[in-house]
Design a protein around this nucleic acid. Structure first.
Lengths: 191, 191
DNA sequence: GTCTATATGTCGATAGAC
DNA sequence: GTCTATCGACATATAGAC
């Protein structure tokens, strides 16, 4: 009753190489030829493991979703105090973006490359961003905000937009120096 | 002493066609063949007017910068009261994004397609975003904020990030319905 | 499962006639 | 200035041997 859990080493090598190249260069700039060359395999071996370049892209995004949320949770869970946990969203951005050569969000980038909203890939983008907003909502709800006029829905939206905006600004300007200001803004929003 | 002011009709037709296609489909998905076919010209005519596809892209972005800021200013200048003018940034986003089939920011999208920060195109992106932040700064400074702990630099950064984040969220989800909440958040930030 | 060799198309860009 | 015809390179994908 054991289902296929472990992928073959070739499968893994292809996916890891493609993940790196798709993220660093974008989808359309990365050819199958480059993927197979850097993975050190033959072209037919690639098509044995993946049915098309677009299927490879889907596998990349699914893996990316898991990996990225793992990194995010790891940073948030270093804190215990709810307010600190929320602010650590932006500490995470500082670390992640500088560490990834400011390539920004894989899902937002792929949206620019797949303009058709009907594409399967665009659904993965929505799932990813839904999960991000749900995670932010969870962090906001842990704050036990006073039931003033400012309800949590406004706050969740605002923090998500600041998060997304921060990724974009960092990607374009290739710096994280303004993030400390942003964290201060968020700190005032939740107090 | 008359310099070349008016471009030829062929030049204009190419640029307008390319502008539409680059914006709607992205740079790499749009081939020169499609541009020349939809412009109704011959391939050699294109290369008479533009030296390369990348040069065409630069012409597109320079034109786009002018056009887009024209649209933005037009909406902002419908109001006279400083607070209203600032909030109209987000009214503009509602109108523009819905009207452009939610393709988002041409400059952010092109950043995803040109990963190399040394590329000439990336400089145009920075110029565009510098101008946007300067415009926001100008609107914020007109508010005459009380000189409390919250100085205007924090506010300018926050509003710019909310603006950028709004564009991204709209592009991915293809809706503008949350913008009224965002405008409310901005309204509270500046009061 | 992995390989070499190839099929078929499109890419950006150019030559040379008119 | 605009055209047709074509170039070489590279794209994704497949056939068939081992």
């Amino acid at each position: 009753m054991k289902t296929q859990h472990s992928a073959s080493s070739t499968h893994t090598k292809i996916l890891e190489t493609a993940s790196r190249l798709f993220y660093e260069q974008g989808y359309h700039l990365t050819g199958i030829n480059q993927v197979i060359a850097e993975a050190g395999i033959a072209k037919a071996s690639f098509y044995y493991h993946f049915s098309s370049k677009e299927d490879l892209c889907i596998a990349y995004l699914e893996k990316r979703h898991q990996d990225w949320f793992g990194w995010l949770r790891e940073e948030v869970e270093r804190s215990e105090e709810p307010q600190e946990r929320l602010l650590s969203l932006f500490t995470f951005l500082e670390l992640w973006l500088a560490n990834s050569d400011f390539r920004g969000c894989a899902f937002l980038n792929i949206t620019a490359e797949f303009p058709s909203p009907e594409n399967r890939i665009r659904l993965l983008v929505l799932n990813h961003k839904d999960a991000l907003q749900a995670y932010i909502a969870q962090l906001v709800d842990s704050l036990d905000i006073p039931a003033s006029g400012n309800n949590s829905a406004y706050l969740i939206n605002a923090i998500y937009l600041l998060f997304e905006g921060t990724i974009c600004k960092c990607q374009m300007y290739r710096t994280t120096e303004f993030i400390k200001n942003t964290r201060e803004t968020v700190s005032q929003l939740i107090s």
